[in-house]
Nucleic acid binder design. Structure first.
Lengths: 141, 141
DNA sequence: GTCACTGCAAATAATTTGCAAAGCA
DNA sequence: TGCTTTGCAAATTATTTGCAGTGAC
């Protein structure tokens, strides 16, 4: 589980560094993503944050997600579905993705994966990630 | 390099099995994807196939890509960009993806990657794939 | 007070779908 | 011939953007 308070603290620092403001919208969006392991999409973040902040708009959610991603606090889960889904857990882990319903489950790992040597032929490596695709228990029925 | 003739042969078989017709559009789209290592998106497939088949429409390309994917002849490369990109190479390999320009390069591997044990907790595993993200030489400048 | 951020509404980009005509089996 | 597929055009979905008012610093 992610420590939300420390996550907000990092947001505070990074906003200051980047000349960005610490708005309640940014705090709530980050809190929401960090407090769930469902890897929500923009719509899901919007619905959840609206509960506590009824006047937030969907486009602010989109903009906030982009800002938080720029700051390195969250990242998009790679999937081949049309909707982007977000993750605030920066520890080494990968994802089980259900190809039927799109559900994303965390698979914890001790270390980040070493990139194959051939990778360096193509450029500077920033990160590697392993993805496991399958059919989740719920969809298997 | 993929053997295109045998790929078309597989298309022929699978179409017959699935009660789908072997149309020239399907043949050309598959040929195009199998004959390049650029992992083209729908638009790029459309532009290339138009050279040899000027009356093909973009929506047929989309439908054809979906059909070929259903038949297991091609698959989407996972990326976090808005456009889907396709690959016809079914041998074990993974991708270097440039986060700036979206270019996709193949990284060949001897074997498919074993899924972490934790994967099986979530459902039936269909495939694993490793992704390497970075900045390609062209974008580094 | 200033300038980044928000909410609203409208725009854009990628992809999908309804329908009638065309073509593979 | 029958039923899948195509091409056209219009619709849909996810996301982005312009602008004027608002609020964090």
């Amino acid at each position: 589980m992610i420590n939300i308070e420390s996550k907000i603290e990092v947001l505070k620092q990074k906003c200051a560094e980047a000349n960005m403001r610490l708005t309640p919208q940014r705090i709530e969006v980050l809190k929401m993503i960090a407090s769930t392991d469902t890897h929500p999409d923009a719509e899901a973040v919007y619905e959840a944050v609206k509960e506590v902040m009824p006047f937030i708009s969907l486009d602010t959610v989109y903009r906030t997600l982009a800002s938080l991603e720029d700051l390195g606090l969250i990242f998009k889960v790679d999937n081949e579905l049309p909707k982007s889904r977000y993750d605030a857990d920066l520890s080494p882990h990968c994802h089980f993705i259900c190809v039927k319903c799109g559900a994303v489950y965390d698979i914890h790992m001790d270390n980040h994966i070493e990139p194959p040597k051939e990778s360096f032929k193509y450029g500077e490596v920033l990160q590697t990630n392993l993805q496991v695709k399958g059919i989740c228990h719920k969809c298997r029925g």
